[in-house]
Amino acid sequence: MNELTLTSLGIFSVLVFQNLLILWIASMLSEWWVRKLFARTQRRMGPSYVGPLGILQPFADFLKLLLVKTEPSYKYGSVTLARIFGCIGIGALTTSLFLLPISPVRIASDFDVILLIYLLGVWVAVSELLMFTSLTNPFAIKGVSRYSSILAVAEPAFFTAVIVPVYLTSFVARRGPVFSVSVAVETAWRLWLNPLTAIPMLLATIAALISIQSKLMLPPFNIPEAEQELIAGVETEFSGPLLALFNFLHDADLYVLSLVVTFMFLGGPHPFSENLVLGVLTTILKYLAVLTTITILKSSFGRFRIEQGVTSVIKYALIPALVALILSVVVLSFI
């Protein structure tokens, strides 16, 4: 028993390293995709020097910031606190990978969707907020104010949207664990086949995408409000290794949230879940489709003022998600 525990703990510590590595590589690649695509929509080249098509550019940027630049010292802030909270945020993202099928050993339990939301939404959001607040600067605090105002509506919207497929699948799949991410991942595609469940799924997917957009502070939700254009909101004071940490946290957040949409809404490897190669390819394609949608949203809207931002999250994410949830309750009462 004791040896078994030790062995499994050893396995898990290896898995933590592996998930961290996956998180890093995948988030850097996602950043490349978003940057390239976003540049092209603005008739720019985007990253193009390091590696083929500039695919290694984010890696180079990250390593340069981390290894070459020096950490600043602040009169009015604590770099240590910022570091600690940034690392906790990345830790939370690494941990939430254990609930998704991207990890070789996956953890499932009844109602683990709530755990996923608390890891992915609340822990990450709180640690990001505390990280931003650690380096006091009027612009950074304005950014924090904006970020937390958006979060207050984006978190419930994301929660509601994620609950929809889980709620539907836990009744459709008729097997345990109930209200679990793992069951939703495996059976979410079946919901798109029935028009009764496809409507709530569509609404929930839209809501999830918009809430991700706003949770990540991507345009149109990104600029701090002011008479003059403010510098960059929350990341004003970040430079050197801290900026690398922040960029990694942000990209990793984008990666994991898009992964949630890919698996829990779009069904992951389905319809090729038996074939390993085709399954992986399908998953990647779906993931890129999600990223592309987010990038298109990012490039096609002007920036909102804060109250417009909050209102539009309520209008286009929270309310559709609630409608989807009520529709799915109604639909299930018929089935």
Partner: peptide, 9 residues
């Protein structure tokens, strides 16, 4: 796992 991976990071 969260505590451990944060520490690792």
């Amino acid at each position: 796992v969260l505590a451990f991976s944060s520490l690792v990071m």
